[in-house]
């Protein structure tokens, strides 16, 4: 887990920024010792009190945490965009055509 302290604020803000661009779940560790798993969908580092927002799994409403309350962040969920490149699709089409089959992409099962 990426750690942070009052003396090294930059690393955690960098991690939060990367998490904002990441298409999978992350786990954050708070100063209280609590850990929260969820999808980090927003952050505002320019706010008077910089904060992040995330949807924790199995919770309806989003949670908001101040940067200063976050001491660690880890990329614990699968990147849902990984392996779905245009090249991969073209390759799949080429392979299917070579074997006389039809290539298609389907959404992943949401319960999986």
């Amino acid at each position: 887990m990426t750690t942070n302290s009052n003396e090294t604020r930059a690393p955690i803000s960098d991690s939060i920024e990367k998490a904002f661009d990441y298409r999978g779940d992350v786990t954050i560790e708070l100063t209280s010792g609590e850990t929260v798993v969820g999808y980090l969908f927003n952050r505002d580092i320019d706010a008077a009190e910089p904060y992040l927002e995330m949807f924790a799994k199995n919770e309806e409403t989003p949670r908001r945490y101040a940067y200063r309350d976050v001491v660690g962040l880890e990329f614990t969920g699968r990147d849902t965009a990984e392996g779905k490149s245009w090249e991969a699709w073209q390759q799949k089409v080429a392979e299917a055509e070579a074997s006389g089959k039809i290539a298609e992409l389907y959404p992943e099962e949401l319960d999986g």
């Binding site: 949807f55 849902t80 992943e108």
Partner: peptide, 22 residues
């Protein structure tokens, strides 16, 4: 964001399942 297609060019549908269910 949930969809019944999985277009390679789409930037709207790549999320964890618990987000797609919302």
């Amino acid at each position: 964001f949930r969809c019944n297609l999985a277009c390679a060019g789409c930037g709207k549908i790549q999320y964890p399942a618990h987000i797609l269910k919302r």
